[in-house]
Design a binder for these strands. Structure first.
Lengths: 212, 212
DNA sequence: CCAAAAGTGTTGGCTCTACACCCATGA
DNA sequence: TCATGGGTGTAGAGCCAACACTTTTGG
């Protein structure tokens, strides 16, 4: 049997968070896990991941990427289930609704403060986070975590947050701008301070670029 | 059903080659494919890959790494088989013996001159090659493709060969030496020219290091 | 002594990092 | 006018790429 499990990331309350569901039944009942389920006969893996993500969160689309396949026969005591792990990214965590009846509920957790996870999902979490960090450094993947318009400060904070270290504002801006990664929008965001220029990504699809 | 397929690489005749087997039966009968087969009930994925590699080549051990999982239901017209692709690396292609009766035979092919491949194995080949190239740049993975002792020229040629571009000898040597990646051995290799110093890898396990 | 491959340093350009103050607005 | 975050330039250090000749051996 083949299953898919999806590690969903989003920025929420200035933290990198991931979405977990509480299992209603099975051997890991009551534990938290990444949303997932069995692949149907004749179904593409990516389609299965999207279907399960929709069932668990209501999300119609998200950036989706296959991570790794976990096949330890003891990972689920009931049967030998091979699980293909995916990573998903969204820009708006508020778009996530209540999960289907299959689960007790769903909740966002800070990636460094996860509760005990079912099966081998702790390994998946670690793998997904590693992948996200490294892809930030050599692709424009950040587009999937930011809204259509954002300030440069928001863009930079995303990097600082996920990489876990501060960046030099001037150096970072110079580099990013030289790459032509962002497009300056004609309007600004106002607030009780100097208005911030708004940007959007020049490319809304994955591009390999040396960011750092 | 879950299968594993392994893309085996080695340096042979100063070329990067991969090992293919000719299928004896099935819908792709007579075509070439990477060695593989179904995962058994209760078997770990890595173990299945090693078992199938042994059956196809006689190899007892090799560097082995999971690549990607291919799940298109139409990839095998007989049934919906999900295949976990692996990459394997060995230093001595002569150690590969005749494959089991399951296959007509096996042969080494230059990676840029592969025959038409069964199923979606052409995709696997492309993916494996990409992974190998990029891992050469940020790990010491070359240790798995070189014998215990080698000259610096052989080490450098490996890089030039796989990356498809020449390297500056002096700059490359300076960088590699500064990293402490190699250990100088006390003996040399003699020939109709100045004797070459022999080296071995300081670490015989995968390390992440910025090579280029 | 010739062929063949091994081994070795320097310099200029470029890139990267470190660093602190002024600006525009709303209240 | 004050508080808040937004936005900008330079200089020194370190790194990287480009480049060609001498060495050691076997035949």
């Amino acid at each position: 049997m083949v299953a898919v499990d999806t590690v969903l990331f989003a920025i929420k309350d200035d933290r990198l968070k991931t979405y977990l569901v509480e299992l209603r039944g099975g051997p890991a009942r009551g534990k938290w896990a990444f949303p997932g389920g069995l692949v149907r006969a004749g179904e593409m893996l990516d389609d299965a991941a999207r279907r399960e993500l929709r069932a668990s969160t209501g999300l119609g689309d998200a950036y989706l990427e296959q991570l790794f396949t976990f096949g330890d026969p003891s990972r689920d005591p009931r049967a030998h289930v091979v699980s293909v792990a995916y990573m998903a990214l969204i820009s708006d965590p508020a778009a996530v609704g209540r999960p289907s009846e299959k689960y007790v509920g769903g909740e966002w957790f800070e990636v460094n403060e996860l509760p005990p996870l079912a099966y081998d999902h702790a390994q998946m979490a670690a793998y997904a986070l590693k992948r996200l960090k490294s892809k930030l450094e050599y692709t424009n993947i950040a587009y999937a975590l930011l809204p259509k318009e954002f300030t440069f400060a928001e863009f930079e904070e995303l990097y600082a947050l996920i990489l876990g270290r501060p960046l030099d504002r001037r150096n970072f801006r110079r580099r990013v701008m030289a790459m032509g990664l962002l497009r300056l929008l004609p309007h600004t965001r106002r607030g009780p301070h100097r208005p911030a220029a708004l940007y959007s990504f020049a490319q809304q699809s994955l591009k390999f670029i040396q960011m750092l």
